Simulated assay, not measured.
Amino acid sequence: MRALNVAKSAVKNFAFHKLGRCNVCGKISLFVCLDVDLARNNMYCMFCRSSSRKRHVAKIILSEVIQNTPSISCIPKKQSLKIYSTDTNDAFYKVLSNYDSYTSSIFSPNIKTGTEIHERVFCQNLEKLTFDNETFDLVITEDVFEHVRDYQRGFSEVNRVLKTGGYHIFTVPCYFDRPTLVRVDTSTDEDVYLLPPEYHGDKIRGKILAYRTFGIDLFHFLHSLGFETRVDFSNYSDQKLGIFNSYVFITRKVFHHESLSVATVDPSYYQLHSSGN
């Protein structure tokens, strides 16, 4: 049934398909549009199934971290760069599964954190990663941190496992003209819903709770952890890569953040920014 619905959507949106070169698998491909309004989350490459959003992340990796490389698939297998992605069985995993320094993870509450499920595929909790300090040159997370209950600890953990000078390339839903919209108060052990619960689809758990939509205060918080941060917004020239209506955060670790206390948000934050007004 799902395959039939996908086929119907592809036919319905045929006029919006685009021909270009995929910067993940490196092939000339047709980027298939299934939903014009949510183009960043589809426009799938017909070969590696990368989405518009993933190709935007790839664009940043290839311009900021691994320069002079035409696609993710062309990264040399013996490249010393250590990469960690919180996604698995995605387009990056397909083209980098034989890359010796590529690690990916899933999160499952039924599996002990740190367990190696497959070769270089681990069960990890972003709030308490089991990797050593300064292990990775690059960490990739895509639309993950809105689902991390203690996002402050999660970002601090990313800072800890990154080498100084390393990059965290990530995407999250974000308002760039207002503070973070807190949907669930997590200041105690019990979740307190401030807004009707919002769930997003998840390949493993079916659906997962969104605790927040980030806002402009995210930049100050990341700075307090030791990150330099900027955002890349997609533009017209990106369409040749099948990138549409997307933005990607680029953070670079300038120094190691030792304590969460410096960056902890005051509890009144939850009351001040819990409404949509």
Score class of each variant (00 low, 15 high):
T251I: 07
S246P: 03
V11S: 06
L194K: 15
F233D: 01
D191S: 09
L162E: 03
I169T: 09
N41I: 07
V182K: 02
I66N: 01
L209I: 11
H168L: 14
V6P: 02
K18W: 03
I204Y: 05
L241Y: 01
R230K: 11
Y193P: 07
V11C: 04
L209A: 08
D185I: 02
H256G: 10
R55E: 02
I216D: 11
T103Q: 01
G206Y: 00
L96F: 01
C123T: 00
L195Y: 15
Y236Q: 04
K78Y: 06
V32D: 01
S50Q: 01
F221V: 10
A210Q: 14
I216P: 12
I169R: 06
Y236F: 02
S104Y: 01
T86C: 06
K12C: 00
F233W: 10
I83C: 02
K8D: 02
Y151G: 07
F92L: 13
N159S: 10
R120D: 01
F249E: 13
L38S: 00
F131D: 07
S29E: 01
E116M: 13
D37P: 05
H17E: 03
N277E: 13
T130H: 15
L272F: 12
T141H: 12
I72Q: 02
R178N: 15
S224W: 11
S85E: 07
S237N: 06
E127L: 14
S259Y: 03
V65I: 09
Q67G: 00
V182I: 15
F219W: 03
N133T: 09
K59I: 07
D191G: 05
L129C: 10
E119V: 04
E228W: 10
E142V: 15
T188H: 08
S29A: 07
A15Y: 09
E228L: 14
C25Y: 08
G154Q: 12
T115E: 05
Y247A: 10
K128G: 11
T69G: 06
V65F: 14
S268E: 05
L96Q: 13
S108G: 02
S105W: 05
K54H: 08
G26W: 08
R2G: 11
L38V: 08
N42D: 15
V254A: 09
D217E: 09
L38G: 08
L162D: 01
K207D: 13
I111C: 07
F131R: 13
A91F: 11
D177Y: 10
I66F: 04
P173N: 10
K27M: 03
